[in-house]
Every structure is written in structure tokens, then in C-alpha cells.
């Protein structure tokens, strides 16, 4: 029983992170009907931005409340910018082309980011006043992510039968907060209404005077920022950061989005939680080495049984 409770907690903690990343896939899919393959890698870049900020702040400052806020802000803003550029220069020129073209571009960007970050390239730029600006790619090997939230046990039940860590609670709360902000943005603001209109039919939305280009760009920035936040939470949970993390977390989050029905915002959240729990239970009760296969096995199962996902409908394609 206690073991079950522990797995439930771990699964929820992982699931909320998947849910956050899945939201990004679903939002972009909603407005562009494009599976943004590079989403996970944008997340990885965000984690590295957070990592650099944390290192820059130093051991003392990085775990203070302001330090953590700064790390999140830097990563999320940086990623929003990256998302903007990717949309502007890679996806926008292809918007009216066949969908395969955009998909291949997305795969290309994903590949360029995840493997470009593994290069050992760097340069030093001498600055006036004896300072030196050194820029370098992180290289292939994973790095330890600094403990910006010092791990402490917050709740212990029985003889360490169930342990809840502070970072699990904090990350759950941050994820929940981000989801509420998103909910507010999408359903309570003018921007959200415009976004939903574009997702419904972008040509009609344009005729109604909605600046579709700007809305799509903002959606991209929003989803990238969410990914950066989620990525940082993942890095805190995993205590490591590597160039390939985006590929794996991104794929699992995509599976979560499909489970919930892609394009469906509440579906992405439920899908993320379901995937987190399923993965945790398989690892806990069956075999931990099979962790990476679980998500895809589950995906194929969902596609076989309920191709539209739990909440999605298989819409008839109009010609």
C-alpha cells in the first residue's frame, strides 16, 4: 500500500512535467496543424540557458528564491526568443507548402539542435578592460544540474515507506501554476480568443481582422517558454542535463499529447499524468530497463484502440 502511494507520488511528479511539455505540442498543433518535432530540443536549449544562469549566479545565489526566479525567467525568455526565430525563419516560409515539408524542417531543426549542442566548439572574445567573453557549446557528455532547490524530505510516512521530497511538491506547484496561467491566457484574454480562432480556421480568422502571423508567433513563443519551464523542472528531478534529453523527454511528451488527443488542451494534461503514472508503475513493478520502451508501446496501443486519443475526435477531413 505504502509502495503504491510512493509510486503514485513519483508518477504524478513526472506526469506534470510531461503534461507541461505536451501542452506545447498541443498548442502549436492547434494553430499550425504541425507536429513541432523540435519542441523537445527547444526545451533542452532552455535547460542549458537555465544551467548557464545558475552557474553564473554562483552556489549561494542560485538557490535563493530570487535566484530560482531569475533562472526560470532567463530560460523561459531565452526559449521564447528561440521559438520566435524558429517560427519566423523555418516554419513561416513553408506555411502554405505541403505538410511534409514543414515536418522535415522540424526534424532537421531538432537534429541540428540536439547534435549541434554536442560539438566541442567554442571561442573566446577579448573584451576591453581585461575581461573575456567565452562562448562554448556544452559538448556531448551530460552535466550535473546544480541543486537550485536543495533536496529535503518534507513528509515521511511510517518507516520511510513514503517519502515526499520538497522538489516534488515545488515542481508540482510550479507546473500547476503555469497551467493555470495558460488556462487564463487561452480562455480569458483577447489573445487567447484570437489563438482559438486561428486554430479553428486561420483563413477565416484572418478575414475577421486577426493578425494570424502574430498570433502564431506568440503561440510558438508561449509554447517554447512553457517547454523551458518544464525542462528546468525535469532537470531538477533528474539532476542532470544533456544535449539528448530534449529528444527523449520531447518524444514522451508527444506521446502524452497523443494519448490525450492532440490539439486538446485538457487532454494534454491528462495524457501527461497518465503517461507519468504508467511509466512509474512499469518501472516500479516490472523492469526499470524497459522504461524507454513503455511510452512507445503505450502510444501504439492507444493508436490501435482509440486513434483520436482519450479526448480527441477523429475529424473527417474536409476537402
Amino acid at each position: 500500500m505504502a509502495q503504491l502511494l510512493q509510486h503514485l507520488i513519483n508518477g504524478l511528479a513526472a506526469g506534470t512535467i510531461y503534461a507541461l511539455v505536451a501542452l506545447g505540442y498541443t498548442m502549436v498543433y492547434g494553430v499550425l496543424k504541425l507536429i513541432n518535432f523540435a519542441h523537445g530540443d527547444v526545451m533542452m536549449v532552455g535547460v542549458y540557458m537555465g544551467y548557464a544562469t545558475a552557474i553564473g549566479l554562483g552556489r549561494q545565489a542560485q538557490s535563493s528564491l530570487w535566484g530560482v526566479a531569475l533562472i526560470f525567467a532567463a530560460a523561459m525568455l531565452g526559449c521564447a526568443l528561440l521559438g520566435f526565430f524558429i517560427e519566423r525563419f523555418a516554419y513561416r516560409p513553408l506555411r502554405e507548402k505541403p505538410r511534409l515539408t514543414a515536418l522535415i524542417t522540424a526534424i532537421g531543426i531538432s537534429f541540428a539542435l540536439s547534435y549541434g549542442f554536442q560539438l566541442d566548439l567554442g571561442f573566446k572574445l577579448p573584451l576591453p578592460g581585461g575581461y573575456e567573453l567565452s562562448l562554448a557549446l556544452p559538448g556531448a557528455s551530460p552535466r550535473a544540474f546544480p541543486e537550485i532547490i536543495r533536496p529535503t524530505e518534507w513528509l515521511i510516512i511510517g518507516d520511510r515507506d513514503v517519502v515526499i521530497w520538497n522538489w516534488q511538491v515545488i515542481s508540482f506547484l510550479i507546473a500547476l501554476g503555469l497551467m493555470l496561467v495558460l488556462q487564463y491566457l487561452v480562455y480569458r484574454t483577447r489573445f487567447g480568443r484570437a489563438m482559438r480562432a486561428v486554430s479553428w480556421d486561420h483563413r477565416v480568422a484572418a478575414l475577421m481582422g486577426i493578425p494570424t502571423d502574430r498570433v502564431i508567433a506568440l503561440t510558438f513563443m508561449l509554447s517554447s517558454a512553457l517547454a523551458a519551464g518544464a525542462g528546468l523542472l525535469y532537470a531538477i528531478k533528474d539532476t542532470s542535463v544533456s544535449p539528448l534529453m530534449g529528444l527523449y523527454v520531447g518524444l514522451k511528451a508527444f506521446v502524452a499529447a497523443v494519448i490525450g488527443g492532440i490539439g486538446n488542451v485538457p487532454g494534454a494534461v491528462v495524457g501527461g499524468l497518465v503517461l507519468g503514472l504508467v511509466e512509474e508503475f512499469v518501472v516500479g513493478y516490472a523492469a526499470s530497463t524497459w522504461r524507454d520502451a513503455v511510452a512507445f508501446g503505450f502510444l501504439i496501443l492507444v493508436l490501435l484502440v482509440k486513434p483520436g486519443g482519450l479526448f480527441g475526435r477523429v475529424a473527417a477531413e474536409k476537402v
Partner: peptide
Amino acid sequence: MPVYGLLLVALMLSRP
């Protein structure tokens, strides 16, 4: 590897 990725993007933009 990164060159392959950029090659795909460049191909799609210029000669899909």
C-alpha cells in the same frame, strides 16, 4: 550530424 539537420532545413526552404 548537425550538418545533416541544417541540410534538411536548407533543402526544405530552397529546394523542397
